[in-house]
């Protein structure tokens, strides 16, 4: 069985202009990037826009990445995190000046599956995650969805591993306590 190319090898090849290598990187990582973005911005169309933007950034900047400095996945999710942050800043600004209502009318892109399950567990989970503070939410998504270890999250978010663990402790404690409260109320 032929050996599978590593991410580093594919990125080097993509930097040299290999469309095949870039395509493999996209197919290998697109789903995780979309899911992290979805968890962060809670909108399917926006998550896809962010994912597209992330991979175009990878393509354009492939030559700048240097193996050994950081794993490809750490770099990929750093770009993803920054795109998510930029997106939320734009959204909050639009909300502040009232333009979000105009845009919502123009692009009513709620995911039907999410709308249908609005009373269900999925909607509760999504709302609880969305309500977490930004840094806690991103750390948790990088841990649970991207599958990064805490030191990798630290590299991605450019903070210490101890700070990552504090964010994760707070985020999981909040979600656990909310779930416990819901169970007691039922």
């Amino acid at each position: 069985m032929p050996r599978e190319d590593t991410d580093d090898e594919l990125l080097r090849a993509a930097a040299g202009g290999s469309e095949r290598a870039f395509g493999l990187l996209v197919s290998r990582h697109l789903d995780r990037v979309r899911r992290v973005a979805q968890g962060y911005v809670a909108n399917a169309a926006d998550a896809d826009d962010i994912a597209q933007d992330v991979f175009l950034a990878v393509w354009r900047n492939a030559a700048r990445w240097e193996a050994g400095e950081a794993r490809f996945s750490t770099w990929l999710f750093r770009v993803t995190a920054n795109r998510c942050i930029d997106h939320m800043r734009r959204r909050r600004l639009k909300s502040w000046v009232g333009l979000d209502k105009v845009e919502a009318v123009m692009a009513n892109d709620d995911d039907p599956e999410r709308t249908l399950s609005g009373r269900g567990e999925l909607a509760l989970a999504a709302a609880a995650v969305k309500a977490l503070p930004d840094r806690q939410r991103m750390a948790l998504l990088l841990s649970v969805v991207a599958g990064l270890a805490n030191p990798e999250i630290a590299q991605t978010m450019q903070i210490s591993t101890g700070a990552v663990e504090q964010l994760l402790v707070r985020a999981r404690r909040t979600l656990r306590d909310q779930a416990t409260g819901r169970e007691r109320a039922e």
Binding site: R34, V36, Q38, A125
Partner: peptide, 11 residues
């Protein structure tokens, strides 16, 4: 529940 919140449809 975090995994569920991050679920996406087909790409």
């Amino acid at each position: 529940s975090v995994q569920a919140a991050a679920a996406v449809g087909p790409a």
